[in-house]
């Protein structure tokens, strides 16, 4: 059964430059215990999509969807109050700068306790035990000393871990991780990634992992979605998608990351898409990738729909096939 089911989600932003869609026709299913990766550049709408699902959109944004359910409960039919309750109980999010989400005025233990008060019933001793358990589950061997520290006394990674502990305090079914490792050094990156994986395996927690790291997706994720300018470009099982990308954009992104090359490319120029990601209010006509696509032609001024190629939805008039790859 799918934990999260989204059909045809649209997010509209209203800014000084006018109204435009930050996310359009977005559909997604995340199964129980699955890690689903979302990959895309800035402005691809990946964060907006996550915020729309959680009801955390900024005030100048509005969203519409055909269907939005979590754990089988259709959120669209609910009153706002009830919807918030369900979202709060079933989902959690880790932001990129979650490390700074801790209040500098209170100790780590106090803050964790406050979060637990909301989600758990029970005495303060029970809560304390649960807090220790949570801190242990995010990889602290001796959390007893840690709870007395103030956030500024701890390093960035430790704070990031603690904030993960607070987000999983509600035992969510789905954890949305919005670039949890960007800006961290290699060891910290792998620590956070290991931690997410452990949560996934031990607690059977589904994870929606928003990232721009192909390596982590190929190692960890079950399925993935590639986004560009608010649209799904391609989606499917990670193994299939990464071994045989259908969309030229996926291919281009993979080719532009040196750690994902098969043969030795040392000091050779990488493949780079021309130009820049267009601003959302000046999207090109037709295929959004059109002006940057290495194999665009006349047909591409018509907007491609999300078609199934080999049971793998892809938004391109000319999906790549395997022969071209070899």
């Amino acid at each position: 059964m799918s934990i999260l089911h989204v059909e045809n989600l649209n997010v509209t932003l209203n800014t000084i430059q006018g109204e435009f869609k930050a996310v359009s026709e977005f559909s997604l299913r995340v199964d129980s215990g699955e890690i689903h990766g979302i990959i895309g550049e800035s402005g691809s709408g990946k964060s907006m999509m996550a915020r729309a699902i959680l009801g955390l959109l900024p005030h100048n944004a509005s969203f519409s969807a055909d269907y939005l359910s979590i754990d089988g409960i259709n959120l669209l039919n609910l009153k706002p109050q009830k919807r918030r309750e369900i979202i709060c109980k079933k989902m959690s999010i880790i932001f990129q700068d979650s490390a700074n989400s801790l209040d500098p005025c209170f100790t780590v233990g106090y803050q964790l306790d406050q979060t637990l008060k909301v989600h758990e019933k029970g005495s303060s001793i029970q809560r304390k035990n649960r807090a220790m358990e949570l801190l242990q589950s995010v990889g602290f061997e001796s959390p007893e000393t840690l709870v007395n520290y103030y956030p500024h006394q701890l390093s960035h990674v430790i704070r990031q871990r603690i904030s993960i502990a607070t987000t999983i305090a509600s035992r969510p079914l789905l954890l949305i991780a919005d670039e949890p490792t960007s800006g961290l050094d290699p060891t910290s990156q792998s620590q956070i990634n290991e931690l997410l994986l452990r949560l996934n395996v031990r607690n059977n927690m589904s994870i929606l992992l928003i990232t721009h790291d192909f390596a982590i997706l190929s190692q960890r994720s079950d399925s993935m979605t590639v986004m560009y300018c608010g649209e799904i470009m391609e989606t499917g099982y990670s193994y299939d998608l990464l071994s045989h990308p259908r969309h030229p954009y996926t291919r281009a992104l993979m080719d532009s990351v040196p750690s994902h090359q098969h043969n030795d490319m040392h000091r050779k120029p990488l493949f780079a898409l021309k130009g820049v990601v267009p601003p959302l209010h000046y999207l090109p006509i037709g295929c959004t990738l059109g002006p940057r696509c290495p194999q665009a032609n006349k047909t591409c001024v018509k907007k491609p729909g999300l078609t199934r190629d080999d049971n793998q939805p892809v938004r391109c008039h000319f999906p790549l096939n395997d022969k071209e790859l070899s």
């Binding site: 550049e41 800035s42 721009h212 281009a252 992104l253 080719d255 532009s256 990351v257 040196p258 120029p269 990488l270 493949f271 780079a272 898409l273 820049v276 990601v277 940057r292």
Partner: peptide, 11 residues
């Protein structure tokens, strides 16, 4: 930088 821009700058 974004992934596609990273490759441009690296090149």
């Amino acid at each position: 930088l974004d992934m596609s821009i990273q490759a441009q700058i690296l090149n």
